[in-house]
Design a protein around this nucleic acid. Structure first.
Lengths: 339, 339
DNA sequence: CTGTTAGCGCCTTCAC
DNA sequence: GTGAAGGCGCTAACAG
């Protein structure tokens, strides 16, 4: 069995190329002050031996790595991979490498942030920040580069990229009331997510203004199973709602499945509206009416904001808010009793 | 705006605690030869100042980081997050940190591997290895810790965790032939994936043995859009198949959506079978018959194999093969013309 | 343009 | 038990 040959160092390369180690370093860092001939010679040796520079040594000197932490609450929620993919691509194009951590609980998040700090990551992008996150508050107040995407945190001053939750829910309310729905329920997530909190609040207000009632608000986790249980409970009630809105698409898909299980026709007997417009929402089997957010664009913007922060630590913080847009598909129609 | 305070070092802690830096290091590494009193004193100072050790400096000395690279072809395919979540959790429990890279193309893969090598990751887990991957061949032959999950590579000797693809497809063939299907099509992926190649081959053989024809095999990417186009084409033919099997669930879901678009009833006019049994497959809106693979278990096993390899570099390579199991749901039924 | 010289923060013998 | 000392591989002045 072949043992791994101990890795080459820049000293080896220097020796081989007949130059000093510093020169190798210059070549590798594209320093201008190197003659073309020595540069080529060094590059040739590097190439020939498949030398790969040691990022730890480099980072130790520069007091920072080119790693960027990305924290998510639940990779299995299809909403997140959309963002993750775009973030990874964008960071990679800038020579940064993503370290993804899945942190379902507060404790796991704290632990994950700690590991990222050990790695001396250049910055951290939080995709599903909780309003009471201690680590985020601490990092930001210490001046560490933090970008919040999708969810923000009250009172925390940092770069933020979000969608207009209130605006989105107004569109949903308008749409449903326009279809004569009066008994509307909302399946939401925890109040610790700015998205959920803001959407619940905006939706309630928007419905009231239009003379409709938010008959029930169920709060829980953002995952499929919780939404499924919540919908099951809601739809088995005597006076079940004629429409259910949700705070993200995955939950709306759960509602759709529950409706099918209970043999309730959608949109005939029940209208369902999601949020985010993930690719799944457009599938024929769902055809979910939902609120579109420019996910890829948001992810890119977040990555760019982080990069700018790394280059210009003292730049003023930006708060980017993308407008919401209603995508009407086949999961909504006039309320059944609105004849 | 608060500037980031320059990070504390173990020297600072040592000074503060009135001990040498070496002692701080010993405490942090649970060295036995430290008196309880000094240990507590050091720990108190560490705690008080929120000191976080620098993984780059540590890694530089130890000549290895506690980072583990994980390479995937497409995070947005719901199959992968299932594995990723389990791998992340398992590695994390062992003090290892995942670096996830999304590599759709060969070139991106090579680039990603290079970045991981720069980071001196302890090992790399490939979730969607291509049979012709140069980086994998190179890493393995140099003795670098590599674990392949889900897909293997011919002739590459390393730890591997896979499902029994051939066995799985035999189950599918049996099932469909048992339902009297004679015109069966298969929507597959590239031949460069061991999974796809093996499944195509086994399926063809199994059908033939049972007197049925594999009327068409479509090969392409593993993603939703390609499968969708392929299904559209297949189902618009004069002599369309009565059953379509696929090489993963996402593709089967695409087929289901196409069927709905073409107003073909499933399973009345068309039977559909997937592979993997991701959570989506069980949703009421799909109720997809598919081949179950113990995804979480496979991911854990892969993580464990990597850890063992790190501890015992010369241990013999393991090749773990999990048996396949058919999960019959509502997307399959007797062939329409089998009266 | 290129070599020499200090470290970066930590682990690890080696003495005491 | 604990401290002193020497790197790990690389970057960044500082001389030439």
């Amino acid at each position: 069995m072949t043992r791994r040959s101990s890795q080459l160092t820049s000293v080896d390369i220097a020796h081989e190329a007949g130059v000093s180690q510093a020169t190798v370093s210059r070549v590798l860092n594209n320093d201008r002050y190197v003659s073309a001939s020595t540069r080529n010679r060094v590059l040739a040796v590097v190439e020939a031996h498949g030398y790969v520079r040691n990022a730890m040594a480099q980072g130790l000197v520069k007091r920072q790595s080119r790693l960027v932490g990305v924290l998510v609450a639940d990779v299995t929620n299809p909403f997140y991979p959309e963002l993750i993919e775009a973030i990874d691509a964008r960071l990679g194009a800038a020579g940064l490498q993503m370290i993804l951590s899945n942190a379902r609980s507060r404790q796991v998040e704290a632990e994950a942030v700690r590991v990222l700090e050990e790695q001396r990551v250049a910055g951290i992008i939080f995709i599903s920040a909780q309003l009471d996150s201690q680590p985020i508050a601490r990092l930001v107040s210490s001046g560490f580069p933090v970008v919040l995407v999708n969810r923000y945190v009250d009172g925390v001053e940092c770069d933020v990229v979000i969608g207009d939750s209130a605006g989105g829910m107004v569109l949903v309310a308008e749409h449903l009331v326009g279809l004569s729905h009066r008994r509307v329920a909302l399946v939401a997530g925890t109040e610790l997510a700015s998205t959920s909190r803001d959407r619940v609040q905006a939706f309630r207000a928007a419905l009231r203004e239009r003379g409709a009632d938010l008959t029930a608000v169920v709060r829980g986790e953002f995952d499929y199973d919780h939404a499924y249980q919540a919908a099951l409970e809601l739809l088995r009630r005597e006076d079940r709602p004629t429409a259910i809105a949700t705070v993200n698409d995955l939950m709306a898909l759960a509602v759709l499945n529950v409706a099918q299980r209970l043999a309730l026709s959608v949109p005939g007997e029940l209208s369902v509206v999601g949020y985010d417009d993930i690719p799944l929402a457009g599938w024929e089997r769902f055809s979910l009416t939902t609120v579109r957010q420019p996910l890829t664009e948001m992810a890119r913007r977040a990555s760019d904001l982080l990069q700018r922060r790394l280059q210009t630590p003292d730049a003023p913080f930006e708060r980017v808010v993308y407008p919401a847009e209603l995508v009407e598909r086949a999961s909504t129609a006039a309320a059944p009793d609105s004849g």
